[in-house]
Design a binder for these strands. Sequence first.
DNA 1: CGCCTTCTTGAGCCGACTCAAAGCTAGTGG
DNA 2: CCACTAGCTTTGAGTCGGCTCAAGAAGGCG
Lengths: 212, 212
Amino acid sequence: MLSQVAPSEDLVFFRPHQFLARENEQPDGLFHIQEGWACRYRMLSNGRRQITALYLPGDCCEPCWALGRPSTQPVVALTNIRAKKAPCRMSGALFADSRQSFWKSLADSYERQANWLVTLGRKTAMERLSHLLLELFERMRQSGLAYGQQCALPLTQMDIADITGLTPVHVNRTLQVMRARGLVELQAKWLRIPDLGILREIAALDATETLA
Amino acid sequence: MLSQVAPSEDLVFFRPHQFLARENEQPDGLFHIQEGWACRYRMLSNGRRQITALYLPGDCCEPCWALGRPSTQPVVALTNIRAKKAPCRMSGALFADSRQSFWKSLADSYERQANWLVTLGRKTAMERLSHLLLELFERMRQSGLAYGQQCALPLTQMDIADITGLTPVHVNRTLQVMRARGLVELQAKWLRIPDLGILREIAALDATETLA
DNA sequence: CGCCTTCTTGAGCCGACTCAAAGCTAGTGG
DNA sequence: CCACTAGCTTTGAGTCGGCTCAAGAAGGCG
C-alpha cells in the first residue's frame, strides 16, 4: 500500500478522546480510518450530547469536508485509531483515483443520516437499539471485520445512549430485555446477533434500508 | 439560462399529495423548485410517519439523486408546486454551470440533517418547534420570501408533528404555550417571529448552526 | 491493592402519548 | 346565501415510556 515515497506523515494515530477535528475548523485532510472508531457529535446545555455519525474502520472521515466547508461538529476518537490522511481538495490528482469511493461514502453517510432521523423521531427504545446493532454489524461485515454472527463493538452504554437519543440507564434496561429474549448477546465489547432477520423485524426497518 | 431551444417540458407542476419521486425509483432529473413546498418522508407500521427533508422555493430536490442512486424515500408535494426539471448526470455540460450551487445545496442539506439528528435525539417539544420555525423563516428569508419578521408557512400541525417527531396534539398544545408567551405568531399558514434572538435561545441552537 | 470507569438496580416522577369528542374553517354545490 | 362536507385545530382526561436521582456492584488497569 505504501509506495516507495511512503510519506510517513500520511499515517496518523489518535487516542480515545483525542480530537480528529474541532468545531469551526477547516480540516486540512480526510481520514481514511484503518483501525479504531470515532464519532461526530454536538453538545447542548445540561450536558446533553448527541452523536451524529460514527466512523468505523474503512470509513472516510468526513466526506462532507471535501465539499469545502469548515467542520461544524467536532469529531473525536472513541478508541485508539490508525488512519491515513489524504488531501481534501477534490481537484487533486491523487484524489481522482478514489473519486468513486468518495462519492459512495458521501451518499452512504447521507442516507444513514436520513435513516436515523426516522429512528430518532419515531421509534421506541428497543427499535432504536436494534437499528444501531444491526447497522454496526452490517458495516463491520462489509469491511470484513465480522466473524460469523459476531463483531467487535467498542462502545460504552453511554456512547450507545448518545447515539440513540436515550439515557444510559434506559439503554441498560432495554439491552437486558433484549438479552433475555435471546435477540442479542453483547458483553465485553463484543456483539453477537443470533438471528438477523428477527432483529430486523424488531428494528422496524424499511425493506429498502441497506444499513451499509 | 434557457437556451434558444427553451424546452417547455422543463417546467413541471404538482398538486398536493402528488409524488415527485417514489421509493426505489431512479429519478430522471433534479427539480429546482420555483414555487411551493415538498417533503421527503418514511412511513412505519402503525401509521407512524417521519419527514426527513423539506424542499422550499429555491431548493434543489433532491441533491443526493445526482450521486447516482435510486431514491430511497418518497418525495411528495405539500402544496401546489412549480418546478424546473434538470438532467441528473453530473457530467452533463449544462450541469457544469450550476456545479457550485449544486454542491452548496448538497452540503446544506447534509448539515441540516445533522442538526436535526441533534434536535430529534435530545431536545424538548418547545426546542424542536423553535428550531423548525427558525429554520423555515431563515430559509425563506434567504430566498427573498420573508417580509420583515414574517413569512408563509403552508404546513398543517400534523406536518409539523411529522417533522419534529411529536404528535399533532402535543404540537398544538406546545404552540399555544409559545403563542401565549409571545414567542411566535402562527395562524392561517402565516408565521411571525417577534424576536429571533429569544427564539434562538429557546431552540438551544449551537452558535454555529446557520439554519440556512 | 486502590482507583476510576462502566454497568446495574431501585424508586418515584414527568413530558409526551393515546383516545375521544367537539369546534373551527375553507371549499363545494344547491 | 346557506347547508354540507372534509380536513384541520382545539380541549379533556387518563396513561405510560423513558427520565431523574441515587447508590451499589463489577470490571479494568497501573
